[in-house]
Computed example of a mutant assay.
Amino acid sequence: MIKLGEIQELIVDRFAAQGVYLKSSNDDEDVVLLPIKEVRDDIEIGDKIEVFVYRDSKDRLISTVKNPKITLGDIGLLEIVDNTRIGSFLDWGLEKDLFLPFTEQRGKIKKGEKYLVGAYIDKSNRLCATMNVYDMLRINAPYEENDNVSGMVYNFNPNVGLFIAIDNKYHGLIPKQKLFKRFEIGEVINARVVKVREDGKLELSLREKAYKQIDIDAEKVMNKLNLNEGFINLNDKSSPEKIKKELEISKAAFKRAVGKLLKKGKIEFAENGIMLKK
């Protein structure tokens, strides 16, 4: 059986002016064309050739000896080469670009940018791309608690958090309560594994362990003070929302950072805020 969207070994059945026709076995009646420009001079009937099967611009099955950047069920980072009213087209290394339907997109899609997509077969038996890669990602990543990882943002749910494809392969999630800034779909981020869940998926954090993060947060506070002529309108009575907006950290992290800076004598309290110590 000839399989759409997969790399497979097929048998040369017969020659034609436009190329050679291939089949999956001697008993198979279905054939697929390998264009003449991809046929080697030494090919003979009965030879086996490894090809990828997809559909051409007229929606006919066709094969190629070229390997696409992703195959059926795979995930990869592909570049948008064109945007249309019904969807976008991606460069996946073949003559015909891979179609990304509008309904399968997440966020604003920009020409020339790369996005994480998976390949699937739609209801019309066409090979297409989707940004809904959740079910295509793997579990049981080779990472443990406190390991540093890198991944791409592929979805955001305000009730759950930020979904990350670690190494473009594995499930990762930053829970909503650990998010202190906005991220765009397609953005690559670095994070720390805080928990390996029982289902094999990874829970992530953008922050270091507390004893390391306090120095980073203290530096954020100092930078903000220096940018605001030595004063910021924040203190331990400020709302968590205001602190998050100004510094992109939690109120608890802010209080720890301020406490350290006070202890070192770098800042002091002022009316309605803090200031650099003179």
Rank of each mutant, 00 (worst) to 15 (best):
Y120Q: 05
Y120I: 14
G112K: 06
V149T: 07
D167C: 06
Q177P: 06
Y134D: 15
Y115L: 05
K169V: 11
R192T: 15
D91S: 11
P175R: 06
I121H: 04
F99W: 01
G93C: 09
V160Q: 09
G118P: 05
F180M: 12
N146V: 11
I189K: 09
N132L: 10
I139L: 09
H171P: 05
R192D: 02
F156D: 00
A191L: 10
E144F: 14
V160W: 06
T130L: 04
V117R: 10
G107Y: 01
G112D: 04
E95N: 11
Y143R: 05
V194R: 13
I166N: 09
G107D: 07
K178R: 10
G112L: 08
I86Y: 14
V153C: 13
L173N: 07
K181L: 07
R182V: 12
N83A: 11
E184N: 14
G93A: 10
K181W: 00
I185W: 00
K111W: 03
K181Y: 08
Y154N: 01
K114F: 11
A165L: 03
F89G: 11
R126E: 12
P101N: 02
K96L: 06
K123A: 15
S88V: 01
Y143F: 13
I121R: 14
G186C: 09
D91P: 04
K176P: 04
N157Y: 14
L137I: 08
K96A: 07
Y170A: 02
A129D: 05
F163V: 02
R138Q: 15
L116W: 10
N140S: 12
R106A: 04
F102L: 11
F99T: 02
F99A: 02
M131T: 02
F163K: 04
K108I: 13
K169S: 12
Y134F: 15
R85F: 15
W92P: 09
N190K: 15
L137M: 10
V193A: 04
Q105G: 00
S88I: 00
I164T: 05
D82V: 02
K178C: 04
R106Q: 01
V194N: 10
F156R: 00
N146S: 14
Q105W: 03
H171S: 09
N148P: 12
V153Q: 06
G161E: 11
Y154M: 06
N168P: 02
L179K: 09
Y120D: 08
E145Q: 13
N155Y: 05
K110L: 12
S88N: 02
A165K: 03
K123Y: 15
W92E: 11
G151V: 10
V193Y: 04
D82W: 01
N168L: 12
K114C: 10
S150M: 13
D122G: 05
D167A: 14
D97K: 10
A165Y: 07
P142I: 07
I166V: 14
T84L: 06
L179N: 00
I189P: 10
I164E: 03
P101L: 02
K178E: 13
K181C: 02
G186Q: 10
I166E: 02
V133M: 07
L162I: 14
L179Q: 13
D82M: 11
L137E: 05
T130Y: 07
